[in-house]
Structures are given as structure tokens and as C-alpha cells.
Design a protein around this nucleic acid. Structure first.
Lengths: 237, 237
DNA sequence: GAGTGGTCTAGACCACCAT
DNA sequence: TGGTGGTCTAGACCACTCA
């Protein structure tokens, strides 16, 4: 059974997206919504808080919940555009190549980043992302073998996240991203079509599971002209 | 009177920061905390949710709230490092120069970005940020005069946010950031010490007030070698 | 099965906005 | 002053983890 406040969130989000509720107007009051959805006020408030953190509405005390123009705010919410999502938009114009898939003993740099134990092995997946026949992104993923015993090559061609969360049932709780700009390495030059660009945008991603253990480190290296990151930050109350 | 859940949040956050509660251990259960703080469970849960979104703890159903290692996760929470915060860390090594402060009628580009009305004027503030005698960041701020009638030069030397939120009492609700990499403009070359770098990291920032109206557009142009952005994303329930 | 966090309720009082 | 959202309570039941 799905949560009640999720259902209410879905319903209201849909109405806003479809324009049934217009941007700039006010949502029905929380009291009215409790009657409309036959639930308690706290449940309505949970749904509204979700709408708020996802940029659908803005709550103003004493006034009401203002419906925002979702198109102007321009999603995704927090820059978490995976290549999978991107490629779905791009259709046939986007491709992914697995350049390498290995189980290896980590060197000092990776030991530091992943905090692996002595004698533990890690998976290394190197993938190149192609858009319109240009090689634009170099993705290097490192995963603890203790958490992921097997990593089929087939899965690497698609989304690692889908395999990890879907098939393995591991649940990703939070991630830390760090964006910097660096000079291209020999590896970058080897795999990417740099077109003379002398910088690479490096996105380092540290992924943690629900039990708060780190289990994946990803380095995503982008050609600068095709890089774009969007962040949507809300002041917390 | 401060909110109860804020007080509880402050107290627990302090204990975690000071190491009174050790990373890796579990917080007292919600039931115990209700007794300890003499409050209801929902109030405790609000405090714990704050700790969670700020990266202090990780809640696990059926188990408890795991205390995270705040130093490993390495703040700030969502990359909102203002130059003010940075300069406080850098002390005398960081400086800010106001290059220009003008009230102007917006051209088509700005009209588009800020969605200003016909005949409305906007403030333009251009500032250069210096670290260790190098000019590294070019900040261009645009603010609606209808929201900010006066903008003293003195304030521009420090933090615009402090003036806006502190003295004017306007309340910033949320912001959208967009990070891209571009080629330097003549303006970049004029104001910044580019040291031969052929790219500029551009951070566009759209700031909205509590009534959901856009009132500021900022373009922050960084020399790539000194740029660093950190994002801390949590899966929402 | 005991203990944990997650959801949900029904009601109270307060702070803020409009008129 | 009436209506709005914000805080807080006391209690219920469910889902999950672990021994």
C-alpha cells in the first residue's frame, strides 16, 4: 500500500503539471484539502512539503500555497541527471561504450577515496558516453566487491543504478558531489574527442547506502562545452 | 520564543560536533528522546529530520539513527559558499573590489532573465574577488529596483545578502543555480587574471523571495583552477 | 517478540496576512 | 477579525531489524 501523502502529492503535482491548477494562483487551503482528500491536516502538510521541496509550490504563512511556474524553474531538482535520463531524451543520438570492466586491488588513491579494508577488491568500470557521434563524457566507477559480488558486463552497458537498486535491492540514501575543473589526462585524451579543449570538468560522486556506508566512488569527466549542472536549493525552515 | 525542535536540533548537533556522541554509534531512540527533552514524538522527529538533511545522522527503519562522521562528509551542505564565508576563512588573503554600481534600464538579455516589467530599472553591481593578490572571480549582480530602492556602495563591498536579508528584511526562499563552462569574454579578460586559462566557469544564480517572485539574477564567473562546488543530495522519502 | 522508526489521526494553540 | 499556515501534543497502528 502506497503512502497516503505520496498519493496526494502525485495527484496535486499532476494537476499542476497539466495546468489544471494555474501558476500564480493559490492552492486550496490545508483545511479544504483535508476535506477533499478525507485525511488529517498533518498528512496534507506532508504532501505539501514534498510539493514545496520539489519546486511546485511556495508556502506563505497567513496567505496560502502559491503555485509556481514549473517550466520557468526548469528541472531536474538537484542536478542529478544521469546519462540514462539524458540518453532517453536524446534517443538514438546517445550511446554508451564500456571500455573496461575489471576486478582489481585498489591503489593508494582509491584506498583513500573509498576507505576500503586491507585485501578488499573493487570493481572498476570505465565507460565512454557518446552524443551525436562525439565522445564527450568519461565515466569511471569504482564499487566495493563486498557489496556487489557480481557485475555483469550487460548491466554496465545500461544504468549501474538500476542494477544496484533494482536487482540487488541495495538502497542509495545520499550522495556527495564535488565539481572541479582540471587539465585533461592522457586517459582523457585517449578516450574523448577533446576538440582542442584544454580543460575537463570533473564530477566526483561519493555514494552512500542506507546504513550510511560508502560503497561507490564515481568520477565523471566532461568536455566543458557540453557540461551543464543545475541545482535547486531551498532555504530550510 | 524559539521553536522547540530547533532547540533540540541545536543541542544534538552540538553534541555530535563536539564528539560527545560518537560517529558510527546510534542516537537514543525517539522514545527515549521524548522523555529526555520532555516533548512529543513528532517534535523529536522534526529535530531528527533536520539533523538528517544536514548530514548529521542517517535514519534506518527498525534500527535507529546512525551518527555520521561530519568531517568525512565535509560541508557545506549544498555548495552555497558565498564569497563572504570564503573570505572569513582566508582572512587577509581575500579581498573584494566594487568595479561598478549603476542603476540602468535592462537590455533584452536581462529582461529575459529577470522578467522585468516595462520601464522598470535594475541595479547592476560588478565586483571582482581577489585571493592572494590574484583576481579570480567576477561577480555580476542584477537586482530589481522595485524591491530595493537604495543600494549603498558601502554594502556592495561586503555581502549583498546580509544587506538584503538583514537590513531590508526581505526573505530569500529559494535559488536556482546553473553551472556551465564558457569561453572568456573581453570583460573577463579585463577584470580577471586569467593566467592563460581558456575557459571560465559560469555560475548563474536565480534568487526568489518568499512570495515566489524573482528579484535577483547573479552571474559569477570563476577562473577554473580555483573553482570548487560541493553538493550534498539526499534521497527524499 | 521486543524495540525501532514510519505513517496517520484529531485536536489545540499560535503567528501571520488580509480586510 | 476570520482565515491561513506553523507548531505541538498524545495516542494509534504498521513495517522493519535483530536476537
Amino acid at each position: 500500500m502506497k503512502r497516503k501523502y505520496d498519493l496526494i502529492y502525485d495527484e496535486l503535482a499532476k494537476q499542476i503539471q497539466e495546468g489544471v491548477i494555474k501558476p500564480g494562483t493559490l492552492l486550496p487551503s490545508e483545511k479544504e484539502l483535508t476535506e477533499q482528500f478525507e485525511t488529517s491536516r498533518e498528512t496534507i502538510r506532508k504532501a505539501l512539503n514534498l510539493l514545496s521541496t520539489h519546486g511546485y509550490i511556495q508556502k506563505v504563512q497567513g496567505k496560502g500555497s502559491i503555485v509556481l511556474d514549473i517550466n520557468k524553474l526548469n528541472f531536474p531538482i538537484s542536478g542529478l541527471v544521469s546519462f540514462k535520463e539524458l540518453s532517453e531524451k536524446m534517443g538514438q543520438r546517445a550511446k554508451s561504450h564500456v571500455e573496461s570492466l575489471e576486478l582489481l586491488s585498489p591503489g593508494p588513491h582509491l584506498q583513500e577515496q573509498l576507505k576500503v579494508h586491507e585485501g578488499e577488491f573493487i570493481w572498476e568500470v570505465i565507460r565512454v558516453r557518446e552524443i551525436d557521434k562525439e565522445h564527450i563524457i568519461l565515466d569511471k566507477d569504482y564499487l566495493l566487491q563486498s557489496k556487489i559480488p557480481n557485475l555483469p558486463l550487460e548491466q554496465c552497458k545500461n544504468s549501474l543504478y538500476e542494477y544496484i537498486e533494482g536487482e540487488l535491492g541495495l538502497s542509495i540514501a545520499f550522495a556527495k558531489k564535488e565539481i572541479t575543473v582540471e587539465e585533461p589526462t592522457d586517459e582523457d585524451r585517449k578516450y574523448l574527442h577533446l576538440n582542442g579543449f584544454s580543460n575537463i570538468v570533473v564530477v566526483k560522486n561519493f555514494v552512500y547506502l542506507e546504513d550510511a556506508s560508502l560503497f561507490q566512488y564515481t568520477e565523471s569527466r566532461h568536455r566543458p562545452d557540453k557540461f551543464r549542472f543545475i541545482d535547486f536549493a531551498r532555504r530550510n525552515k
